[in-house]
Amino acid sequence: MMAGDPRLLLQSAPFLRRGITTPRLMTEVIIGMGPVILAAVYFFGISAIFVMLATTAGAAGAEWLLGPARPRGRTLKDGSAILTGIVLALCLPPGFPLWMAFLGGAAGICLGKLAFGGLGQNMFNPALVGRAFLQAAFPGAITTWSAQGDIGGFFTVRASNFAAPFMQATPDAVATATPLGLMKFEHQTTPLTDLLLGNTAGSLGETCAIVILLCGVVMAVRRAFDWRIPAAILLSVTVFSTVVWAFNTEKFPAPWAMLTSGGLLFGAVYMATDPVTSPVTPRGAWAFGAGIGVIVVLIRLWGGLPEGVMYAILLMNAATPLIERVTQPRPFGRGAIEHE
């Protein structure tokens, strides 16, 4: 049928695009994480790089092998697997055996993302699924923290990094407790300046509070993520822990120590803000963040573990569909939204 000029292309409006793509958003988050990565390398030496490479290789490998075929590796281009790998590495201890790290990255992508149907469909943050997997499989290795500067120099590699697969991972000679561990089991407090500057033991990316905070502010201004989520988390942790602390300043840690120690800041800025697993609705984002904050404080103060950010985020990830259901925006020109 001669429907008209054959050269004319028919598409559906709108014909303009903002020009920002999903891979670019992912890249922006990775770049926004740059200073945290540099801080990790600065504090923990070349081991940090090894752990990051191992998790990223695991994550990207799993995505390539088990992700959508035709063409194989198509979904690697969206950058999300690489992001998962880096985030996972940043919440592991520096002396972590590399084979475990590789496995963690692969498990995060397989169980946390591909099992649900790939990017956008997953219920839980893949990096945290990877970490939960490692915590369950290797509880010893993942809680063996080495202090900064425990080794000779930048290029000295921790022996435990190269532990052979399925052999007993040899713990480091100098195992140190994290500030939260000290707080919980030995009732010692760590000076605030150490917490802020990162002069403590801990996972690769979580020690230096100042760097994470600054990166978070820059990324929030650049709208790389929904600023409401970290704001809600920090607010609720502050409020909740201040109330508890006011009851008994001897027994409970001060709110500023709660805010700056452990993985709270890193989790709030880089993990809870994963758009796929957090509510899209603005009011939902506030509820989501507040819930994480409350659970973190509950686990830290009364739970069996010293740290609870991972489980707090995973639990609220699971609650996201419910939160969204009750926080749908009020459509223009309609009264209170009618729920079915």
Partner: peptide, 10 residues
């Protein structure tokens, strides 16, 4: 690409 539920459209 897959929708990453970024919320821009909202």
């Amino acid at each position: 690409y897959a929708c990453v539920r970024c919320g821009s459209c909202l």
